[in-house]
């Protein structure tokens, strides 16, 4: 009895505080932001009307959902019609050649989200596959590091958007697309641009992580005469994991920002194009729809970082450090 009462008392006090800090305060922050937004937005009047408040933006979101559903329904209808048409043809004449055409509707907002996420993941994964091994080798060998360092230092500060024209030219010169190609050119352009900006932070962090493997552990490796490969796998990689993830998260964050800009600039399909098209449209709904995109871009960026954090927690051996 008495222990229970003590427990419940400590529970209520400590847990209330934890709850307050981890839930109530953030929610309060968001609420204050929404309030200020809805108060101030109508005061700013543009050529497309007043800036929409949270309510209008939400209704635009609902409209986008409806559009998406309509588009999907149209697609289903299209294929149904095509099928019945072909079935009729075949019933008349079993030898008849039938045409199966793809539905060529407009990509909806949600299609654009998927395109962007797939593109960023493709570019990011490919970049990581290239950058992590390079970073490890550069961290292990002073010679390789010395050779790579000037290149990395020079290319790192280049805005990936500056690469875009070069990438576009090279892709269109070397990648010959047929109808059933694996990738679209636009996909390749965006993904390669993302790749180029993901490389540098990952290479640098990985190299730093590898050079900082503790002297003691290196001595252990020497005494055991571990082979190069075992040394990398058992000693270097686990030591460098935290730094590698720092680089990866940095890369992914930049990648997501760059991708949206690249899509806007080059009219490649994706969220960036959605924003740009809406801007060009200039209807009274455009600002609201762009704001929906802004919020979604932010949420996805946040989600991507959380996924990386989750992976880092899975892979990291040191569960005691607080990962943020």
């Amino acid at each position: 009895m008495s222990t229970q009462s003590i427990e419940s008392r400590t529970f209520s006090k400590a847990d209330f505080k934890a709850f307050f800090v981890s839930f109530a305060v953030p929610i309060l922050g968001v609420l204050i932001f929404l309030m200020l937004w809805s108060l101030l937005a109508p005061k700013v009047v543009t050529s497309l009307g007043a800036v929409p408040g949270p309510k209008q933006v939400y209704s635009q979101f609902e409209a986008l959902v409806v559009e998406h559903k309509d588009e999907r329904q149209k697609q289903v209808d299209f294929y149904e019609r095509q099928e019945t048409r072909n079935a009729k043809k075949l019933a008349k004449d079993p030898e008849a050649t039938i045409k199966v055409r793809k539905y060529a509707g407009n990509p909806t907002f949600f299609d654009q989200i998927i395109t962007s996420v797939v593109t960023v993941m493709a570019g990011f994964l490919l970049a990581s596959l290239i950058a992590i091994p390079i970073g490890i080798v550069a961290g292990l060998s002073k010679t390789v590091y010395a050779a790579l360092n000037p290149l990395v230092q020079i290319f790192k500060p280049v805005s990936p958007l500056a690469w875009l024209p070069i990438v576009t030219m090279i892709v269109s010169a070397t990648y010959v697309t047929s109808d059933d190609a694996w990738f679209d050119k636009s996909f390749l352009n965006s993904a390669i641009t993302v790749l180029l900006c993901c490389l540098w932070p990952t290479i640098i962090s990985t190299a730093v992580g590898v050079t900082n493997v503790s002297k003691d552990l290196q001595n252990v490796s020497h005494v055991l005469r571990l082979s190069w490969w075992t040394h990398v796998r058992k000693i270097v990689l686990p030591s460098a994991i935290p730094m590698i993830f720092t680089g990866l998260r940095l890369s992914l964050g930049i990648a997501w920002m760059v991708l949206i800009a690249a899509e806007m600039l080059s009219q490649n399909p994706g969220l960036g194009k959605f924003v740009w098209d809406e801007f060009q449209n200039g209807s009274s709904n455009s600002l609201g729809r762009i704001m929906v995109a802004v919020v979604v871009i932010g949420l996805i960026g946040f989600l991507l970082d959380r996924i990386m954090l989750f992976l880092q927690k899975k892979v990291s051996w040191d569960k005691s450090v607080a990962l943020r």
Binding site: D216, L217, N219, H222, V223, L224, K234, P238, W317, D318
Partner: peptide, 28 residues
């Protein structure tokens, strides 16, 4: 060159923190 016939016990243990005690010995 270093070699296992001259094993060393280091001042600050130098165990690999990501391996269990068993796995540390197992690596050797």
């Amino acid at each position: 060159v270093p070699g296992p016939e001259r094993a060393m016990v280091f001042q600050n243990h130098s165990l690999l923190p990501w391996l269990t005690a068993y796995e540390n010995v197992e690596l050797a």
